[in-house]
Each structure stands twice: as C-alpha cells, then as structure tokens.
C-alpha cells in the first residue's frame, strides 16, 4: 500500500522549501514549521489549497506569496470542498488526455476551519472519497483573530472568549476528538503527528499522499502568542504534549488503529508517561490552574487525559 520511502536529515535539508522564507508569521510560529515539514514530503507536482486562517493570512499578503506551489485560497468553511473540486478537475483532464502525470492535492486548515466551521465540507468530501490529503494544524483557538475559543481548545485553557476569572476556569468544555471522528468516516488513512517528531510527521504526510482516497493528518502546532509562552519553546511544547499523552501519536490504516513509535514507547514503559502539570506549567493560558481556587481542574485534566489514553490503548490492542 505504501512505498518504502527512506530519507535522511540531509536529504530533507537539501530539498528546497516549498513554503518559502519571508512569510509574516510571528516569531516562533509552530504551524509554519508544520507546513514546511509537510511540504518536504511531496512526491511530484502538487496543488495546495488553504482555508482562511493564520497560515493563509501570513503567507499571501499582496503582492507577495510564500508558496512555491500552485495555491488557492478559499473561505473558512469550504477548503475540503475546494480540494475535492481540484481533484475532480484533475481526474477529468486526465480522462480527456490533457494531462498525463499524477498531481497531488493538499488542503491546509486550522482548528477553527476544521473543528467548527469546515467540518460539514470535510465530512462531505471524505464521504465522496476524493483523493486528497487534509492537514489540520491545530493551534487550539482562533489565533489569527485574537485567540477566541474553538472546538479544539482544551479544557481549562483561558482564551479571550473563555477567560479565566471568578466564574469559569477557562474553557469549561473538552477538546473534540476530531481524528476519531474522521476514523468513523471509514477513510483509508488518519494520523496524528507532532513537529518535534519530524521524521514521523514527514513519513505520515507521505503516506497520506500515497494512499488512494482521502487522508487526514492532525498535527499539533503550538502558538507562542495564544498559548502564552516564550517563542523559543514551540517545539519543546509539542514534545511535552506527546510525552504527557495529552496528544498521543497514532495512525489508523483502513480503520485499524496502531500507535506510532514515540507513543508506543510510553505504552510499553508506563513509567515514562509524564504528569500533565509538566505540559500545563509551560503555558500562560493555564497559569490560573496553579492558584488554589482552580486546583481541582488539573486533576480533572489528568483524569480525562488518562481516560482517553486508556481508550486509545484498547483500540490499539495494548493492555
């Protein structure tokens, strides 16, 4: 099903950047690293489409563009519909003999454009079975418009529309398990990834392109402005999210779950699993949880993280 593509760090470093320097993302932007790495996995001609969001705004400020691939901007809600249109057009042009080679389609969207606004277009596109890779860079709020909560914001995080104060401890609801929703659509490839495990991320992006039919890649992408931490910690926080099992790495091929190497090590050696405090204390959006008033919230986050981790282990057949 997948080619045995092996690569070294030097080959990746030598590959030209398709997301070029000079884009105007904030210093220390996590999503920018994610997009650079995903585009290192392309295997030939590729068309990229991007929903409204941080990465669209920073990359194409007229008259400059940071994309070295054909690129189409679309509204917040319909990036998946746009990708299916591109894929259908390529199919027709091939049938009429106008183009010979294969062209890959990648759709990028943030958590607002996926969890909340874009989910019906995404659900429809994968149900129709279009052959494209959908990459969700998850910075866990609407960062571009000023840190409003989204369906991807975790429990207890302070945002401008769920501020921690006297009444609520940040967002009262829980993070929507979007990747499991995509597995439930019975699509051939779903995976989660983190930029710290860059090799895993690039391999998964390539698998998503190679697979016949829709593929969904959920990547955690820390945001220094919205998560309130120093710009140098983006990659470190993406590692801690995996080590605390808040964001475990797994892939689902034709509905069969399997853990990826970094998370599998934790599953086999449970003493390596870190408590969630280590992840929470690095970020200012969780700062209020360390005051006596909201002490129980950290235990609640630990409880829900453990519950979801145990459920995932069961799906992967590890006891």
């Amino acid at each position: 099903m997948f080619s045995e593509w092996k690569f070294t760090i030097r080959e990746i470093a030598e590959k030209p950047d398709l997301f070029m320097s000079g884009h105007r993302a904030c210093a220390g932007c996590g999503p920018a690293t994610v997009i650079r790495l995903v585009l290192k996995a392309v295997r030939g001609p590729t068309i990229v489409t991007c929903a409204t969001g941080c990465m669209e705004v920073v990359s194409t400020i007229y008259p400059y563009t940071a994309w070295a691939t054909p690129w189409i901007h679309t509204a917040f809600e319909n990036v998946a519909a746009n990708a299916s249109g591109i894929e259908a057009a390529i199919k027709v042009l091939k049938r009429k003999g106008r183009i010979k080679q294969h062209i890959d389609v990648i759709a990028f969207a943030g958590d607002g454009g996926t969890y909340d606004i874009g989910i019906q277009a995404l659900s429809g596109a994968v149900e129709r079975g279009h052959d494209f890779l959908y990459v969700l860079y998850d910075n866990e709020a609407y960062m571009n418009t000023g840190i409003q909560r989204s369906g991807g914001t975790p429990h207890g995080a302070a945002t401008t529309t769920s501020p921690a104060g006297t009444v609520i401890p940040g967002k009262p609801q829980y993070k929507k398990p979007i990747a499991d929703i995509m597995v439930a659509h019975d699509i051939p490839y779903v995976a989660t990834a983190s930029p710290y495990y860059w090799k895993d991320l690039i391999t998964k992006a390539r698998k998503g392109l190679e697979v016949e039919g829709p593929a969904f890649l959920h990547v955690i992408a820390p945001c220094p402005r919205g998560w309130r931490y120093d710009t140098s910690k983006s990659i470190e926080i993406s590692r801690l999210a995996v080590e605390t099992c808040i964001f475990p790495l797994w892939e689902s091929i034709n509905g069969e779950y399997q853990l990826s190497a970094p998370s599998k090590t934790i599953a086999l050696k449970p003493e390596r699993k870190k408590p969630v405090e280590e992840y929470l204390k690095t970020q200012g959006r969780f700062r209020h949880l360390f005051t006596p008033k909201f002490k129980g919230v950290i235990e609640e986050i630990q409880r829900i993280t453990d519950k979801r981790w145990q459920r995932l282990l069961k799906k992967c057949g590890i006891n």
Binding site: M20, S21, A25, G28, G30, T33, R36, P224, S234
Partner: peptide
C-alpha cells in the same frame, strides 16, 4: 525546526549558514 527556513544547509561546503535577512530571532 526553523519556522522561517532561515538556516541553510550547504552540502558543497559541508556547513550551515544563518540567513539573518529572514531570521525573526525566535530562539527555537
């Protein structure tokens, strides 16, 4: 890991080069 692609690998010289024209100084 550089979000800006501001560090270039030069295989012919076997060395790295920082491109300060694009580096935003994030410290990653």
């Amino acid at each position: 890991f550089c979000p800006d692609g501001a560090i270039h690998w030069k295989p012919e010289e076997n060395d790295l080069e920082f491109d300060y024209n694009f580096c935003k100084g994030c410290g990653i």
